[in-house]
């Protein structure tokens, strides 16, 4: 069975436009127009969502988050790529080559 990640640190990612996003008590919630689902991104997920409003490499996202949060690079890289893979699975982001 393959354990290959869907995204890697050198990938560029960007939001898929057209979703309705709102702040709710410091957390970001979003309605996907495409699939009609509601999502809660949480606080840090909301920060990541703002960072990917324009195309950006994932390792740049990690560096920016490390400026604001108490976290090791290894932990941040692992958890951010996992989170972005979830977003990709739901078609909420696009990777370089898709745009």
């Amino acid at each position: 069975m393959s354990t290959k990640k869907m995204v890697s640190l050198k990938d560029k990612v960007q939001q898929v436009k057209g979703n309705l996003v709102s702040d709710m008590g410091g957390e970001k919630v979003m309605l996907s127009i495409e699939n009609g689902k509601y999502y809660n991104l949480g606080e840090i997920g909301g920060d990541i969502w703002e960072l990917i409003s324009e195309p950006i490499e994932i390792d740049q996202i990690v560096s920016k988050l490390m400026d604001h949060y108490e976290v090791t690079r290894e932990e941040c890289e692992t958890e951010v790529t996992s989170f972005l893979a979830q977003l990709k699975k739901e078609n909420l982001i696009q990777l370089k080559g898709d745009f």
Partner: peptide, 20 residues
């Protein structure tokens, strides 16, 4: 001062629509 890190997660919310 840096903020406390928590693993980012994507939560899918189940919204029930009531037909009236």
């Amino acid at each position: 001062m840096k903020k406390h890190w928590q693993k980012p997660t994507l939560e899918v919310l189940e919204i029930t629509m009531t037909m009236a």
